[in-house]
């Protein structure tokens, strides 16, 4: 017997859910299915095959995609690492800093990239780089990625830290740990699940960013999303579906890890 207030008792709950799921995941599932299609056509099914995956890794355009993949992953690792370090510092400052002037303003500044339309950030970043005479390329992408990754790394880290009582740091300092030792030996290990979660989230966000990257990348440097976009402009081929499916799979893996990481030790603390 379901409870009276159970949401499943609302009329039309089931059809509404179905519609939402279809709109959200239908296209993704179709792309995944057709990435295994043994046909150059993207709409006619001609049987199962892995030829487009082979094409991605060993085909004519493989070097281009491999280069883009290398750029994407190296930028994502560096951007996520840097953003995570900054986010940890920011979280400790915001949450352990007590009440300080401009605390609300600081928080707004931290989460601004989440609220400003990405195209605005993209244009502004491009103008900024050209004003200071920074040559567009790999470095500009990296800097831009670090910046917009910070709030994504910050949120899970801050959420974790808010649940850690400052009594642990006090206990550490009471037991002769210096401030730095209290941080690295007690606070950091307790924050670690949040830090891992924040890192993975920042990594995924960096990996699949398109708009900002496309503005600041300069000529000749591609990341996976811009490379895919470039390829699609010349007509959609099934190998694009294969790449997209791989990226999707990777994102799911990372987000799943991030979710599990944020829950480690939750029941104990």
């Amino acid at each position: 017997m379901r409870k009276v207030q159970d949401i499943r008792r609302y009329q039309g709950f089931f059809s509404m859910t179905l519609l939402c799921m279809l709109l959200l995941y239908g296209p993704l599932i179709i792309v995944m299915i057709y990435s295994f299609n043994d046909s150059p056509s993207i709409i006619r099914w001609e049987g199962f095959s892995l030829r487009w995956y082979y094409e991605v890794f060993f085909g004519l355009e493989a070097p281009k995609f491999k280069k883009a993949a290398f750029n994407s992953f190296s930028i994502a690792i560096m951007a996520a690492t840097t953003a995570t370090i900054i986010a940890v510092a920011a979280a400790v400052g915001m949450i352990r800093g007590g009440q300080f002037r401009a605390k609300t303003a600081s928080f707004a500044l931290l989460s601004l990239p989440l609220m400003v339309p990405e195209i605005v950030t993209a244009v502004a970043t491009l103008i900024f780089f050209s004003t200071i005479g920074f040559v567009a390329g790999y470095a500009t992408i990296l800097v831009a990625h670090i910046v917009f990754c910070i709030p994504f790394a910050y949120l899970p880290i801050a959420a974790r830290l808010e649940n850690i009582s400052s009594i642990y740091e006090e206990a550490a300092m009471d037991l002769y740990a210096s401030r730095a030792q209290a941080f690295f030996r007690v606070l950091m290990p307790l924050m670690l699940p949040g830090i891992i979660s924040g890192f993975l989230l920042a990594f995924v966000i960096s990996l699949d960013d398109f708009i900002i990257t496309n503005f600041v990348k300069g000529a000749g440097v591609e990341t996976l999303p811009t490379a895919i976009f470039g390829a699609v402009k010349q007509g959609i081929k099934p190998d694009i579906m294969a790449i997209s499916s791989l990226l999707l799979f990777l994102s799911i893996v990372f987000v799943t890890f991030s979710w599990f990481a944020s829950r480690i030790g939750m029941k104990h603390s």
């Binding site: 006090e170 206990a171 300092m173 009471d174």
Partner: peptide, 29 residues
């Protein structure tokens, strides 16, 4: 500062370090 005082505290809610074993907790100081 607290870490320079030859004084130790038993906290109200114990504040044992959850990521360390009992042995490492006791040996921390």
């Amino acid at each position: 500062p607290p870490n320079r005082r030859p004084v130790n505290t038993v906290f109200q809610h114990y504040a044992l370090f959850p990521h360390l074993s009992i042995r490492d907790n006791v040996g921390f100081g």
